[in-house]
Amino acid sequence: MRLNGTGDAIANQTYPLTTDDLTDAIGDDELDLAEGTETIADILQRFGDQTFHTPEEVEHTLQAGVCERAIGRKGYSDRDPTTPGSVYGHECVSF
């Protein structure tokens, strides 16, 4: 996820801010995702009404709330083995 200059807009707000305040100020700003974009308002609505005390709280909420288009290819990892019970990856084979 890229903030596309929205990080500056988040940092320049006067805190504390409610979700409605933040949506009114920068809700139409779009974040670049691995596959498309999403508005800040769309992300924030997933969490309901909140009060943010710092710009970092806003950024963490946005990172936690982006849709699945932000992760790129689902189930892909070039580092970790498939986790037990995962629907992605290979099925266990007994020899």
Rank of each mutant, 00 (worst) to 15 (best):
Q45I: 06
E68W: 05
L31R: 00
V93C: 05
L31C: 01
G65P: 02
I26K: 02
V66L: 03
A70Y: 01
D78V: 10
A11M: 07
N4V: 11
V87A: 10
A34G: 00
T61V: 10
N12R: 13
G89N: 08
A64Q: 05
F52A: 01
S86Q: 13
G5T: 14
L31T: 01
D24G: 08
S86L: 12
E91C: 11
E68V: 12
Q45Y: 05
Q63I: 01
T6A: 14
G27M: 05
I26S: 03
Y15S: 11
G72Q: 03
A41M: 02
I43K: 01
V66W: 00
D28H: 09
D28Q: 10
R46Q: 14
T6R: 00
T19S: 15
E38Q: 15
V93I: 13
P16W: 02
A41T: 08
D29I: 02
E91Y: 09
C67N: 14
N12M: 12
V87P: 00
T23L: 12
Q63E: 06
T18K: 09
H53Y: 15
T54P: 02
Q63Y: 04
I10T: 02
Q45C: 05
G7V: 07
I26P: 01
K74V: 10
D28S: 14
T61D: 03
H60T: 11
H53A: 13
T18R: 09
D28R: 06
I43R: 03
P55N: 13
C67P: 00
E56P: 00
